[in-house]
Amino acid sequence: MIHRTSTALRLARRRKVADDVVALTLEAADGGRLPDWEPGAHIDLILPAGGAGAGMVRQYSLCGDRWKPCEYTIMVQREPDGRGGSAALHDEVAEGDLLGFGGPRNNFRLAPAEEYLFIAGGIGITPLLPMIEQANRLDVAWRLLYLGRSASRLAALDRLAVLAGDEDRVTVHDADRLGRADLESWRPKDPAVRVFACGPVRLLDAIEAWGAVPGGLPPRIERFTAQNGDGPTPAAFEVIASRSGVTAQVGESESVVDALRRAGVDIITSCAKGVCGTCETDVLEGTPDHRDSLLDDHERALGDCMFPCVSRSRDPRLVLGI
């Protein structure tokens, strides 16, 4: 479903960056600024109707340059066992097509440290790339262990070489050639080193089990969990302002705020991008389709409030406490 410009992205460019991995450059449908983000952030991408995985929500870490405010970059690995989402982004969505999106949200913030150890498994490199750039920008020492089945499947090796410069910071472990990595040998002993990791579940389980070095902090990992309310959402739906009893039809190219304003009910907004929190509204009935940057997974699952400047509905009818 393609919604209003503030929740739609246009695929500007797609290029192959490794075996079975493409990088997508996405721009705002209106060509303007996109909501700001920080390293570790991801967007929720809503797969287009008519293709594989229609209406499904997929999370992709942002791995571009946030000093370019009008574009996002994500990398997508083809998942042969997946439900078709990655295949659609590889094969079906054409340059110029629109995709619905939510966020960006950040459950994996880069926290300050004296030194970083980044550990990536395969496509798990994506959230770590902007973190590594940030470490460079802040002149903080870092190392990266990059694990994969074969080097030809690992994205961004050239970019990492540039980021490492003259220093020996990146270790690529090619399992096809070298067998299983000795992860334990990478376990930090120095409490000043903080670990940030993203990759397959088994890798993350092992790293999480390290816990904190005495005097240090536990590793931080990014796990993409199943989405609440995955699946197609209605293009248009009904919204009811319970206090005034006003009912409005929300069309597919307008926001809940727009529709209610048309019906004579104003919700005060400020940023209108799901970032500032001004328009927070109680949800009494129906399941919101959250598109904001504010709520964490737990808060989203509660389903008791939403930000109607961007968020929509998973049900045909949504009752708000206004």
Binding site: D36, R261, D266, I268, T269, S270, C271, A272, C276
Partner: peptide, 15 residues
Amino acid sequence: RDPSGHVGFGMGIHQ
């Protein structure tokens, strides 16, 4: 009036 979007609190990352 709908005063939405005023810049009395600023706007953007430093709002």
